[in-house]
Amino acid sequence: MNIINQFRSLSYKQQRDLLNQLQSVLSSSRPILEHRHVNNCPYCQSNKLYKHANYAGGGTRFKCVECGKTFNEFTGTSLHRVHKKELWDGFIRLMLESKTIREICVELKISKQTALDWRHKVLSAFNDLYTKQFKGVVETDDTYFRFNEKGKRGVVKYDRKLRGISNQQVSVMVTADRYKSIDLKVIKLGRITTSALEKKLNLDRFNKSNIIYSDNSRIIKNFFRDLDIQHETFIAKEKYNGNVHVQNVNNLTRRLKDWIKFNFNNVSTKYLHNYLNWFMMIEILKDKNNSEDIMWDYLMKSSSANYNFRKIENNYKILCS
């Protein structure tokens, strides 16, 4: 109680400075390595490893028997060669609150480029995490985002009054079953095609026991017919006796678009896939009490996060080609 009374006697600025210092101490004390369990070599995926040395940060270096390369717990992860790791606890907390780059820079006292790089290093870790198979009824629909080069100077201004679907829009498939498993995938510029769906969707998440509900899209019907998966069409003007609807997907799409518009006032197409990952992570964690710990567990599972981060520019060129 004496400490609390002393804290109350401080001015508001002194209280805020003290809280920031305490937060920094708390962040630097987080045992990040407890969330990382090294079982395979990040270079060749072999499990024939042995401890090679220790380093100053309190971690361990390993050596792979198969390829002979050495690495530590952070190699290949989002924290690969990242400085100021002690700030990442606060950084993850701000990400879970959907804070903007400007707000993160002010609170953590880092540069805009550092905050942007850290954000996409984190989000690149979630590319391959959503692999759980859909169960039972699965709703799916395509939605579209305006092609955007936010953050790039000297870009061509696009016609905001343009109607219909064109290459100035990016197609995204939104899929969800009724057990809260979801999937969001960037497909291509312009209208979806069956060949693009085959390349972009994770087909292992679907199985023959699924029943697919969608609107009256010929492309979606043909795609699932070729996969030999039962498909039923929902037409808004008709009334069905039963639960044939796409309300879950429509609600998910609305929340996604509202989240992007409210928090970021639209996002660059170059990074759209990562923002979809971010939204899926928020959806997974929204009812969890220990969301920060769970996010750290997800974050440190991926040994390909750094590789995915370096591929962003190339993937964007492929999307635009």
Rank of each mutant, 00 (worst) to 15 (best):
V65P: 02
N20G: 09
V172W: 02
E97M: 08
Y240D: 04
L18I: 08
N250Q: 13
K200S: 14
Q169L: 11
K84H: 15
L19S: 06
S111G: 15
S11M: 04
K237H: 13
Q133T: 14
S9A: 08
Q45N: 10
T253V: 08
Q45I: 09
R146I: 14
R160N: 09
E34V: 05
D297Q: 09
N289G: 11
E34L: 06
Y50S: 09
L201T: 03
V138D: 04
M281Y: 04
L285T: 09
I212W: 06
A115I: 01
E66F: 13
C44L: 12
R146C: 07
G136I: 08
Y144W: 00
S302D: 10
V138I: 03
F145N: 01
Q23Y: 15
L184V: 00
Q247T: 02
V122M: 14
L227F: 07
A305V: 03
E149G: 00
S24G: 12
N202W: 12
F223Q: 00
A125R: 03
T253R: 08
A305N: 05
D142N: 04
G154I: 06
S24A: 13
R146G: 14
I182E: 08
C67Q: 04
F91A: 01
R160M: 07
D17K: 14
L96W: 09
T233K: 02
